[in-house]
Write a protein that binds this DNA or RNA. Structure first.
Lengths: 228, 228
DNA sequence: CCGGCGACTTGAACAATGTGCAAGTCCTTT
DNA sequence: AAAGGACTTGCACATTGTTCAAGTCGCCGG
């Protein structure tokens, strides 16, 4: 009977769990080791270093994405679906956004996704470099939106972990931020209104609004300058 | 004559220098202390902790931005200008993107900018929450674009610092990434083409392309549903 | 069946870094 | 000149990534 040994795959999946629970700065090798019931340094036999582990975790997560069948749906439906799926992936795994800003990421699943994304915009009528720019515009839009969610998630974790200390600091920061906002008419209006709560609750609405605007704009580009 | 003493402002400005040069992970209190000709811990008298320092540095940088005069230019020119300025700020200070994904940021200069941004989209004809969503869409688009630049900058720094070790790892990673890309037709095409070089050289083009598409889309929204 | 080899794990150790603390040093105020 | 506050310093500790030499385990050739 073969010895019960660690797997690279097992390590990566556990790392994703930890990243989801504790964020990018919450992932450390000792905690990972503990969760794997092994010494922290055992991981180094399977993975080069922490950066490499994050790279692998990233691509693992990318593999969650299902790609739309381009023969079955029109490009706009496909583009919307891919963008929403991506956005949801980022909100499920907020650390991804940080990883994206810190390292150049690549991997099998991401390549698969990128290729499919290009196919969508080629199907829409963009040729060559234009398809690149369209795909990249939508991707970066999604990424930017997710950044807000990531920051919020990081804050929420901090509040959940440190019972009381962080709570005060948070209140303090909130108070300072509000005090600043009160001095700017448009920001103030958004604090005063009873609508304030609904704003905060609806980053997803803002995301879809902007996404449709962006896709509208792209569609317009094609109309103005049809398939070359 | 008063003693020559550290200033909060001086500390923040030095921190920005260090952040620009070494990135977010390159900023550490001892290095900061050395650059200020003082003990690392002297900083703690002026600033609560590192996170707080980054927050202050962020707002310092936000202060670089000039805001367009809304009585002098139409909204679209103003929106384009603000977006481009923002993008340039992010590329000048790539660590900002990481900071944005990791912490919830606020400050005087950012509030000023946000307020002005809302004014632009209200001038465009968006009311209330719609102006919020429009402004947020453009902002997040810019942020997302900057993430790519930030990752590239981080990589470039790493290559510049570690003379030879990182060089090999980079070549290795490049080779792996290319090997993957070669298995996907559209990605492969973009490696094969002589155009490959021009792609890589033109993230700014992609940025402006998407920005105009997004603004086109927003404009269309107003046209379809005029000022309420 | 056994000896060794390669796969994998472990624990100790080191360097880098954020930060608290007690003791200093310097200027201003009375 | 004495006192008190503003600021600085050095030391110390905890946390974390990573290396390394020494283990342990199971298989395989003899």
């Amino acid at each position: 009977m073969p010895r019960d040994t660690l797997t690279r795959d097992q390590i990566v999946r556990t790392a994703v769990e930890l990243l989801d629970a504790e964020g990018l700065e919450g992932l450390n090798m000792r905690a990972l080791g503990k969760r794997l019931d092994s010494a922290a340094t055992a991981v180094y036999w399977h993975v080069k270093n922490k950066d490499n582990l994050v790279l692998l975790a990233t691509d693992q997560v990318w593999g969650e994405l299902k790609l739309p069948d381009l023969d079955a749906v029109d490009w706009r439906t496909a583009a919307t679906g891919m963008a929403i799926d991506l956005y949801e992936m980022f909100t499920r795994h907020p650390w991804l956004v940080q990883a994206f800003a810190a390292h150049v990421l690549y991997g099998e699943s991401k390549a698969r996704h990128d290729d499919h994304s290009l196919a969508v915009y080629e199907a829409a009528g963009f040729a060559g470099a234009q398809a690149d720019q369209a795909a990249s515009a939508v991707f970066t839009y999604v990424l930017g939106n997710a950044a807000g969610a990531a920051a919020t998630a990081s804050l929420a974790r901090k509040l959940a972990r440190d019972d009381t200390t962080a709570e005060e600091q948070f209140q303090d920061a909130m108070a300072k931020a509000q005090e600043i906002a009160m001095r700017y008419p448009r920001l103030r209006a958004r604090l005063d209104t009873s609508a304030a709560a609904s704003y905060a609750a609806a980053p997803d609405k803002a995301f879809e609004f902007g996404l449709q605007a962006l896709l509208d704009g792209l569609e317009q580009q094609i109309a103005g300058q049809p398939a070359g």
